Deep mutational scan, measured.
Amino acid sequence: DETGKELVLVLYDYQEKSPREVTIKKGDILTLLNSTNKDWWKIEVNDRQGFVPAAYLKKLD
């Protein structure tokens, strides 16, 4: 059920640097789980959840 889920576009590649982070690729469109922290957003990638720098993402309307 995708209702109410926010999507984000990945602006730059990011390689995870800790187990709490996930790797993302430029151009991916992913589900945003939590954006309350202005610097690190929690997203879902391939059934994995983790954090990436918010500056690497853009919210889609």
Rank of each mutant, 00 (worst) to 15 (best):
L33K: 05
K59Q: 06
L32D: 00
A55Q: 11
E21D: 04
G50E: 04
K38F: 08
Y56E: 01
G27C: 08
V10Q: 00
K26E: 07
V22S: 03
W40V: 03
S35P: 06
K59Y: 07
Q49I: 12
L30C: 14
E21G: 11
L32H: 01
L11R: 05
L11H: 02
R20W: 15
V45A: 12
K58Y: 10
R20Q: 12
T3Y: 14
L30W: 15
D39V: 15
E21A: 05
V8D: 00
G27F: 05
K42D: 02
G4I: 14
A55W: 11
L30D: 00
K17S: 09
I24S: 01
L7A: 06
D28P: 01
A55I: 11
D47W: 07
W41P: 00
K26L: 04
K58W: 09
L7C: 10
T31L: 15
Q49C: 09
G4M: 14
V52S: 02
E21Y: 04
V22M: 08
R20S: 11
E44I: 10
K58L: 14
T23S: 15
V8W: 06
K59T: 06
L11P: 00
K17L: 09
D13C: 05
F51Q: 03
Y12D: 09
P19H: 10
I24N: 00
V45T: 13
K59F: 07
Y12Q: 13
L30E: 04
I43G: 00
L9R: 07
D13H: 06
E16P: 10
K25I: 10
N46W: 09
W40G: 01
E21Q: 11
G4D: 11
G4R: 15
K59C: 06
S18V: 05
I24M: 08
K5M: 10
V10N: 00
D39W: 15
I43R: 00
T23H: 03
Y56S: 08
F51E: 04
E16L: 08
K58V: 12
A54L: 02
D13V: 02
G4Y: 15
E44N: 06
K17M: 11
Y14V: 01
L32C: 09
P19Q: 09
T36N: 12
L11S: 02
T31V: 15
I43T: 02
N37V: 05
K25R: 12
L32N: 01
Q49H: 09
N37Y: 08
N34H: 06
T23M: 03
I43F: 00
E44Y: 06
V52I: 03
L33S: 03
Y12N: 09
Y14L: 02
E21H: 05
D28G: 06
A55T: 12
A54H: 04
D13K: 03
T36L: 10
K5A: 09
P19R: 08
K42I: 12
R20N: 14
L9Q: 07
W41M: 02
Y56A: 10
I24A: 05
I24G: 01
R48N: 05
G27D: 06
K58P: 01
K5E: 08
P53V: 02
K26F: 05
D61R: 12
T31A: 11
S18E: 09
V22E: 01
I29D: 00
P53E: 01
L57C: 07
E2D: 13
Y14H: 03
A54D: 01
L7S: 07
Y12L: 09
K59I: 14
E2T: 14
W40E: 04
T36A: 12
E21V: 03
N46V: 11
W40K: 02
L60D: 03
N46C: 12
D61G: 15
N46P: 06
V8T: 03
D13Q: 03
I24E: 00
E2F: 14
T31D: 05
E2M: 14
